[in-house]
């Protein structure tokens, strides 16, 4: 089955996950959240969410705890860079090679 009947003649993206494909496979480093350092987790209140705000792929949820959708996270590390309490760190993807690379984690 091809794209002959697709409704556009161009590349036209609407906001939402996965418009560029399953980009989680591009990742070489994975963001890992330490809930004991995360502000909304510690206070159990809606607060901070700087990771959610800065994520260019919109794969971090504005929830307690924040969740990261690894199916689409490219591993850019912006969340880890911006987190004011260093609750997110980047870990070598090879350390998770026994797991499904695209599975969602918290």
């Amino acid at each position: 089955m091809g794209t002959r009947k697709y409704r556009r003649k161009t590349s036209h993206s609407e906001h939402g996950p996965g418009d560029g494909g399953r980009t989680g496979s591009w990742r070489v480093e994975r963001p890992v959240l330490n809930e004991s350092l995360c502000i909304p987790c510690k206070r159990n209140k809606e607060a901070c969410f700087i990771c959610w705000l800065f994520c260019p792929e919109i794969v971090i949820s504005r929830t307690i705890p924040p969740t990261i959708n690894l199916e689409y996270c490219k591993g850019c590390g912006i969340c880890a860079e911006e987190c004011p309490t260093r609750a997110i760190t980047m870990a070598d993807e090879a350390d998770f090679s026994h797991e499904d690379k695209d599975s969602s984690c918290t």
Binding site: T3, S11, S13, E14, H15, G18, D19, G20, G21
Partner: peptide, 17 residues
């Protein structure tokens, strides 16, 4: 809202719909 002429991969893709 939409982004126009966004990056395309070498193969076809399933869009958000």
């Amino acid at each position: 809202p939409a982004s126009l002429n966004t990056v395309t991969l070498p193969d076809v893709r399933v869009d958000v719909r």
